[in-house]
Simulated scan of single mutants.
Amino acid sequence: MVSAYIADGLVRGERVLYYSDRTAPGAIDAWLDPRGVDGALAIARGQLEVRPAADDRFDPGVLVDGIRDAIRDARAAGFQGLRLTGEMSWALPDTVRLHEYESGVASTVTGSDGVAAVCQYDERLFDKADFSGLVARHFGVMTIDPLHDDRRLRIVPTFAPRGLRVIGTVDDSTAGPFAEALAHTAGWPEPIVVIDLAELRFIDVAGIRALVRAAEALPPDRALEVRHLAPTLRNVLRIVGWDTTPGLTIGDAGVRAS
């Protein structure tokens, strides 16, 4: 989602300001390459800037003033608008003043023409009650659209690692959508696509066969890595010989099948 947000802004002639806490600038450039956007060139000409998210002298007022300055500077430089995004993990472990910061950002961005902001919260890192209050200070929440979602099966793309999270049941009625989702990953640039089955309740032989066929269709330098596969299903793969399928990795440790 973040790479699409950044790339779209650069293509539209907007300036993009990225506040980084755990991501190196080179990684952001790599995100943009599959989208046909030259991140290094955008950085060189000042259209894309990566800044440290914060330091030990966290001052909400200073940070909000810096955003206001960035809005003014982008307009003065002739850009079509300004897109902001930041990794919010910098606020941990003390998030007391973060609410003040978010209120200041909201009041600055809301109603400003040509300005958009996305705060990147990893909810696993924040206290649940505090996180709910922080979310409430935002105009909306961006979520990942599932590739398939019905009452029996939900398939959601993941990005760290890149792959699919499979939730529910794969049987005769859902094997088709499951195979389509696996085929969708064939166009991704990552050499390894992780299929997370931790929340899978049931998968039949047709579903396992779809995994095997998807792996067989991959070029030699790519693989499907299946995680959290139930022991009984591991035995099925071993018995029929599918565990040696080229391009298929079984087990959380990721030992490639030969």
Rank of each mutant, 00 (worst) to 15 (best):
E216R: 13
D69W: 12
I239Y: 05
F178L: 05
P146N: 09
I43L: 02
A179F: 03
D171C: 06
G104A: 07
D130R: 13
L147F: 08
P52D: 15
D172W: 12
A27K: 14
D221K: 07
G36N: 08
V135T: 11
G241A: 04
R165S: 11
R35H: 00
E14I: 07
D38I: 10
S103L: 15
A223G: 03
G254Y: 05
L134W: 05
T245P: 01
V96I: 14
L211Q: 04
G81V: 09
E225S: 11
D150S: 11
V105D: 02
L63T: 05
G176R: 13
W188T: 07
L211S: 00
T232C: 05
G36V: 08
D55E: 08
V226T: 07
A181K: 08
D65Q: 12
V226N: 00
V170H: 10
D243E: 14
Y5A: 01
W90T: 04
T174S: 05
I28Q: 01
D33K: 04
F58E: 09
A42C: 13
A76D: 14
R57G: 04
R72D: 15
R238D: 11
F58M: 04
A53R: 14
E123L: 06
V226P: 02
L125F: 07
A116R: 09
Q120L: 15
T85W: 01
R256H: 08
E14Y: 00
I203F: 00
A54M: 11
Q80N: 14
D130V: 15
G39E: 03
L134M: 15
A24K: 11
I155V: 15
G254R: 10
A7I: 05
T174K: 06
G140Y: 09
G104R: 05
G13A: 03
H99I: 14
V141S: 01
D127T: 10
R213T: 13
G39H: 02
A40K: 08
D172V: 15
T249L: 04
G39T: 04
H228Y: 15
D33R: 10
L237R: 06
R209V: 12
L134N: 00
R238Q: 13
V170K: 07
E102S: 03
G163Y: 06
V64D: 03
V135Q: 00
V2S: 08
G140W: 11
A257F: 06
S20D: 12
E123T: 02
P191H: 10
F79R: 00
A53E: 07
T185D: 07
S89D: 14
L147E: 02
L134R: 02
G187L: 09
Y121N: 06
I195V: 14
D38N: 13
G78D: 12
D252C: 03
L48D: 00
T185E: 02
L229N: 00
P93C: 09
P177I: 07
A183N: 11
I155H: 01
A217L: 03
A215H: 06
A217C: 00
D38Y: 10
A27V: 14
D8P: 03
H184Y: 12
L92C: 01
I239S: 10
G13L: 07
G36R: 09
G13W: 07
